[in-house]
Design a protein around this nucleic acid. Structure first.
Lengths: 110, 110
DNA sequence: ATTTAATATTGCAATATTACGATAAAGATT
DNA sequence: AATCTTTATCGTAATATTGCAATATTAAAT
């Protein structure tokens, strides 16, 4: 074993899990924070910003990209990475929905 | 290697990553959804709800608990698990903050 | 005190992730 | 064209996660 049983869950559950998983590493959180505040989002700058080797950062960027959290634009021989707002909205709204559901229900235990 | 270099990131970055990581599995998303809508949150019900063996569910519950996303109350010889709203707020607000930062900045590339 | 029911822990095999050096690829510069 | 710069990929070692059978634990019920 060791492989996640994705086929037993809904598409939405899998999708949200994929996005959350991509955010489940401090380096990738640091990348998201960096991209949320910086103006020019050049890959090399991200590498310099992080305390990790270039191939490692490249791998983290790839994972964020696969989850749909960022997108990359070729800019000369550099690459400009930016947050994909749609996916960020999606995860944000998901937690808001869970939160609202929680507010509405009877809290008779914990 | 293989171990995450947590010491190179801020406490907040590590904390958010821990929460996101805990949510990075469809079974744990399914548990959170279940707990957000059900009234009596008994562990056995969660086990029945999920397509996984009891020890596996128990492990997922433990991970959600370690991340602070749920808390467990002993209720007779059963255990009642509930969402910890503080942590849910925390992750929700975090994404809202990132989102707001993104709105404010100049978007001159992607 | 035994038995039953509910949950946790242990042990282990399969798989996935993390990190990085070495190297490749692709565009810019000279 | 040769070189430099920037980013991606490959290969691989170390570690972590996933899943479950077997077993332990704890409290209720008989």
């Amino acid at each position: 074993m060791g492989a996640t049983k994705t086929d037993h869950f809904t598409d939405q559950q899998n999708n949200i899990a994929i996005i959350a998983k991509a955010l489940g590493h401090p380096a990738r959180i640091a990348i998201m924070e960096y991209l949320s505040k910086v103006d020019a989002c050049i890959c090399g700058d991200i590498v310099n910003e992080l305390p990790l080797a270039q191939p490692t950062v490249s791998q983290h960027l790839k994972e964020l990209k696969n989850a749909g959290l960022i997108k990359g634009n070729i800019e000369g021989n550099a690459i400009c990475y930016c947050i994909d707002e749609k996916t960020l909205e999606q995860i944000k709204n998901y937690f808001t929905t869970i939160s609202i559901k929680l507010e509405k229900k009877n809290k008779n235990c914990c």
